[in-house]
Structures are given as structure tokens and as C-alpha cells.
């Protein structure tokens, strides 16, 4: 049935399906929320999905690639090609609003919506609001957290430690 529909409708169906593929490290976020799906294209009957890594060494990429292929095969799109491109480099600006809301609800402070964080050595750090009590009285504990994409913070008001999705 997937074959009968016009290309744009089939592409839209693929985008909806990709909402089911979650980041294995942050299971509330889909690969679409994260902004790592760059393109969905039908080349005749062959589907090609283009993704881009968040970090060079992100260990979740292989799994994400396999999950995308699996979901598409299960839903009748055949052997989809999953291609990785590096340029333009992923930035947290590509995370959608829904993704930011879901992250906060999950207890992870979302990245600030600014362009890539290129502040100089010892530059001003933009305030990060606590995902629990929304206080901006927070302090960075470590620039590196439980995964490459997160930093560790502590709230000065509710005293909870929390992860912050780093802004890059």
C-alpha cells in the first residue's frame, strides 16, 4: 500500500514513523525531536533517510541507524538506506519545541535556543533554569555528564542535581 501513494504523502508517513524511533540514551526524545534526521527521500521505490550525528563519538548512532531501518522495514518500506552526513554539523538549535518540552518534563534542562555555543574561554555562561523548580539559581558541577551531550548541574533553591543538555 505504501507504493500506491504519491511521493510527498509517503515521505510524510515516514516522518511520522520516525517519531517512534527514540534516542536510546534519552528515551523521551525521538530522532525527529532531536533534529538528527536531515532528509527523507524516495529514489524511485528506494527510500533514503539521511541522519547526522550529535557528537563524533556518540555511541547511540549505530543503534539509531539500525532502529530506523527496522521500523521502516516493519512498516513495509523495504530495505531503506540510512545515510550519515556530517555537514552542516548538528546543533542543539535543531531540537524542536516539542523535544525541549519533553526534555524538561523528563528532568533534563533543555539547551538554550541560541546559535552554537562558541563562547570564549572563561566567557559568560548563560543561566540554565532548573527543570524541577525553574529557578535560575543553578550551578554547573561538571561540563561533562552521563552522556556526551549533557553537563551536570545543581539547583541552589530546590537543591536537586540535574542534567543539562549542552548547547552546541
Amino acid at each position: 500500500m505504501a507504493e500506491a501513494a504519491p511521493t510527498d504523502i509517503r515521505e510524510a508517513a515516514v516522518w511520522r514513523l520516525l517519531q517512534e524511533v527514540k534516542d536510546p540514551e534519552v528515551p523521551v526524545l525521538s530522532v525527529v525531536n532531536l533534529g538528527i534526521v536531515r532528509d527523507v527521500v524516495f529514489d524511485g521505490e528506494t527510500l533514503e533517510v539521511t541522519i547526522t550525528p550529535t557528537y563524533s563519538g556518540c555511541p547511540a548512532m549505530n543503534m539509531i541507524e539500525a532502529q530506523i531501518a527496522e521500523v521502516l522495514k516493519r512498516e513495509g518500506f523495504g530495505e531503506a538506506r540510512v545515510k550519515t552526513v556530517l555537514s552542516p554539523a548538528w546543533t542543539t538549535d535543531w531540537m524542536d519545541e516539542e523535544g525541549r518540552r519533553k526534555l524538561k518534563a523528563f528532568g533534563i534542562a533543555p539547551p538554550e535556543k541560541t546559535s552554537a555555543d562558541k563562547r570564549a574561554l572563561f566567557g559568560e555562561v548563560p543561566p540554565v533554569a532548573c527543570p524541577r523548580c525553574s529557578s535560575e539559581n543553578t550551578e554547573m558541577v561538571s561540563e561533562f555528564g552521563s552522556t556526551a551531550c549533557k553537563a551536570l548541574y545543581k539547583c541552589g533553591d530546590c537543591l536537586e542535581p540535574f542534567d543539562h543538555f549542552k548547547c552546541i
Partner: peptide, 13 residues
Amino acid sequence: IALGNQSLDLIGQ
């Protein structure tokens, strides 16, 4: 964790 994460970035590169 910081050193491990930096290692991971470099090995990815």
C-alpha cells in the same frame, strides 16, 4: 566522566 567523554569525542573523530 569528563576524561572518558573527551576520549569518546576523539575516538569518534
